[in-house]
């Protein structure tokens, strides 16, 4: 099982990076959204809350543009039959989960410096980085099962956003309010927020494993 999961992780990374199309489009989307926000703001001083909202909305929509592909590709290229045949569903899901977390983390690594630099936010402390990391993880981990659902429902990117937003609202709320407190310079409860985000991701990932076979198997 462990070896099978490792084989799936290696396969997902190899396939996605050999035809870099989807990965590079997602990266370009993240960069362009960040730049367009800063161009539109044009150096105007924004309130901390507005910064927090813009930053997390960019992360959320970058996730929505990039995270469904790992599942929709299998359905579009018809390789899902091979996966159903040779692998237990848990191995398939684990590989996709790992890939999506790495992918959104990479996107956040593009978004965050661009945002901080072009919108003159200044260098953030470790608190902000810890929050950004756990928020990114929470979004990627809890939307992976939704990506599987979207792939089975025709793979429309818009549908992914529609079904993810209500589920991810608590994550966005916590991330935005804590980020805005940090930017205000006040004493933010980063540890509490990170704990909340981890609990949320843990609950959703646990449920995802229970549900995945129902979503994945063919009628």
């Amino acid at each position: 099982m462990l070896r099978a999961t490792r084989a799936h992780i290696r396969k997902d990374f190899t396939v996605e990076f050999r035809s870099r199309f989807a990965v590079s489009v997602a990266a370009a989307f993240a960069a362009i959204t960040t730049l367009s926000v800063s161009l539109a703001a044009g150096g105007a001083p924004l309130a901390p809350l507005v910064h927090a909202i813009l930053y997390w909305i960019i992360v959320f929509f970058s996730a929505m543009s990039g995270l469904a592909h790992i599942f929709t590709r299998e359905e579009e290229e018809g390789t899902s039959l091979l996966l159903r045949l040779v692998a237990p569903p848990e191995a398939v899901f684990t590989a996709k989960l790992v890939f999506n977390c790495a992918m959104l983390f990479a996107l956040a690594v593009i978004i965050t410096p661009l945002y901080l630099f072009f919108l003159n936010v200044g260098l953030p402390g470790p608190g902000f980085l810890a929050l950004a990391a756990s928020g990114t993880f929470a979004i990627a981990a809890s939307s992976t099962v939704l990506a599987a659902i979207v792939a089975r429902a025709g793979g429309k990117a818009a549908l992914f956003t529609v079904i993810s937003f209500p589920v991810l609202l608590p994550v966005l709320w916590i991330c935005i309010s804590t980020t805005s407190t940090i930017l205000l310079g006040a004493d933010a409860d980063v540890a509490g927020s990170a704990l909340f985000l981890l609990a949320f991701s843990g609950a959703l990932v646990a449920v995802s494993y229970m549900l995945f076979e129902h979503i994945w198997s063919e009628e």
């Binding site: 549900l211 129902h214 979503i215 198997s217």
Partner: peptide, 11 residues
């Protein structure tokens, strides 16, 4: 049926 039920459980 299965996929929409799974979404309800996630939500």
């Amino acid at each position: 049926g299965r996929i929409s039920a799974a979404y309800l459980v996630v939500a």
